[in-house]
């Protein structure tokens, strides 16, 4: 392919597309520094006031803490589950593999509201109090499905006979995992931890149905949207979440794709 037509109409389109994806979101950080209570042009001047106020707010700090309390265990548990499941489906011949995989992947397509109300009803029936724990329970299937997806492409990226060689040389299942599999899939595991944490941290629908009196950060943000005078503070908060998510995800993706890029470019 000649370099001349590399950027043509298609290149222009691609750049506009990225602009369409990114620019709307960039208004959040932009107005979070604007010295006005109204989100409107013209910009009035630079201020850090909204960030200061955001950190002063008890509700915000406690909901931030809640988000961590949910996100960290969810990331660890769902990555462990996703890795196990990915290993099972990539390494063993078994009947019913396709339907089982589709079943595990369903949380990625079922509308969040349906899962949310279903869990809300069942929690109510069996008398479980809504709390951070119920949010975490709701997040795990979704995050585990993503994790399995990430780990499958990582596990398919290396030769199965590596593990067989380890068995052949006298190591059992556990030591084979630690000495061979784990080092080879480590980038995938790190990526999975970061991404599942981000998903749980940012998730709103399930958290809003199942949180009870303990809001996570997105739920808190949503509740603040009703009050116009707190809008700039919410913008500051949103901008921070955006930056942190972006950094986490960028590193995760970089980690995840760097290793497999050459061998399996389809490992998206």
């Amino acid at each position: 392919m000649s370099t001349k037509n590399k950027f043509g109409a298609l290149g222009v389109f691609a750049v506009s597309y990225l602009a369409f994806v990114y620019i709307p979101v960039l208004f959040l950080p932009l107005f979070s520094f604007n010295d006005s209570i109204y989100v409107a042009f013209p910009l009035k001047g630079f201020t850090m006031q909204w960030y200061y106020e955001a950190f002063q707010s008890d509700g915000l700090m406690s909901s931030l803490k809640n988000s961590f309390k949910v996100g960290v265990p969810v990331a660890i548990l769902s990555t462990a589950l996703g890795t196990l499941a990915a290993k099972a489906v990539t390494r063993y011949r078994m009947p019913g593999k396709a339907p089982v995989m589709s079943f595990i992947m369903t949380p990625l397509v079922v509308p969040g509201i349906i899962v949310g109300v279903a869990l809300l009803i069942i929690a109510n029936m069996i008398g479980v109090t809504l709390s951070l724990f119920t949010i975490a329970i709701a997040h795990v299937p979704m995050c585990a499905a993503f994790s399995m997806w990430i780990m499958i492409s990582r596990l398919e990226g290396f030769d199965k006979s590596m593990e067989e060689a380890s068995f052949d040389l006298g190591e059992g299942a556990w030591m084979t995992f630690w000495r061979v599999t784990f080092p080879l899939i480590l980038p995938g595991i790190i990526a999975s931890l970061l991404l599942t944490f981000t998903i749980s941290f940012d998730e709103f629908i399930l958290a809003s149905f199942l949180g009870g009196s303990e809001p996570t950060l997105p739920v808190y943000m949503w509740s603040q949207l009703r009050f116009p005078n707190t809008l700039p503070r919410v913008l500051a908060l949103g901008a921070m979440i955006l930056v942190v998510s972006f950094v986490l995800v960028y590193f995760a993706e970089w980690f995840r794709r760097r290793g497999t890029q050459i061998k399996t470019s389809s490992g998206v």
Partner: peptide, 20 residues
Amino acid sequence: VAANHRPVNMVFQSYAIFPH
């Protein structure tokens, strides 16, 4: 007897050299 307890060793077609 599992593979790791057998008195046999194998040279794999792909060699399966541990890359790390």
